[in-house]
């Protein structure tokens, strides 16, 4: 990564170390609950596998809906039918991500909580949730219109935006392992 970004991230983690989050992460890492996960070799890879499965469900559902909105794929269903088919799986994917992610943080608290890329990822996750809620509401309000016609330019732009948001979160997720700490 560019050195100014590495410097910025390093300064951020140095600041995190001065806050209560540092003590909390150390305390959590010594609890029996945390040790149970980190001491069984198959636990963290299994949780990560569930995490990846949840990305598959959520991210691919977003892709299917977005490509239908953009008119690139899935034309045998209306936009509204596509939303009905995949929106529940976006929520299932997001729930799976939060639950498996929570267990991953409990398994390796210091690696995650005292990490300058983990927190931008969490902001990304919150924005993904907000954007998905907004999209679900917009889809409900437009159920009739989308049955016959095509979504507005705003909704089309938003569908690209939501894909980019997911990519940002996935990117941060992988780079947590390479953060300057």
């Amino acid at each position: 990564m560019p050195s100014f970004l590495a410097d910025l991230l390093f300064a951020f983690v140095e600041w995190i170390r001065t806050t209560w989050m540092n003590d909390f992460a150390i305390w959590l890492s010594n609890t029996r609950f945390s040790l149970f996960f980190s001491e069984h070799w198959y636990m963290i890879p299994s949780l990560q596998t569930i995490h990846l499965l949840s990305i598959s469900a959520g991210f691919v559902s977003v892709l299917m809906v977005s490509f239908r909105i953009l008119g690139l794929s899935g034309k045998s269903l209306t936009v509204n039918q596509t939303v009905e088919r995949y929106l529940p799986w976006i929520w299932r994917g997001l729930c799976g991500l939060v639950v498996s992610g929570l267990f991953l943080v409990i398994s390796e608290p210091i690696r995650d909580l005292v990490n300058p890329i983990f927190w931008p990822k969490m902001v990304g996750v919150l924005v993904v949730f907000a954007a998905s809620l907004w999209f679900a509401r917009t889809a409900r309000a437009n159920a009739g219109n989308w049955q016959a016609g095509e979504p507005s330019a705003g909704v089309r732009a938003a569908s690209v935006g939501i894909i980019l948001l997911w990519l940002f979160v996935i990117l941060c997720g992988r780079w947590i392992a390479y953060a300057p700490v």
């Binding site: 990846l52 991210f59 559902s61 892709l63 990519l167 996935i170």
Partner: peptide, 11 residues
């Protein structure tokens, strides 16, 4: 690789 493999699996 993560983006690709999750897309493979999801589809």
């Amino acid at each position: 690789h993560v983006i690709a493999i999750t897309t493979v699996l999801g589809t």
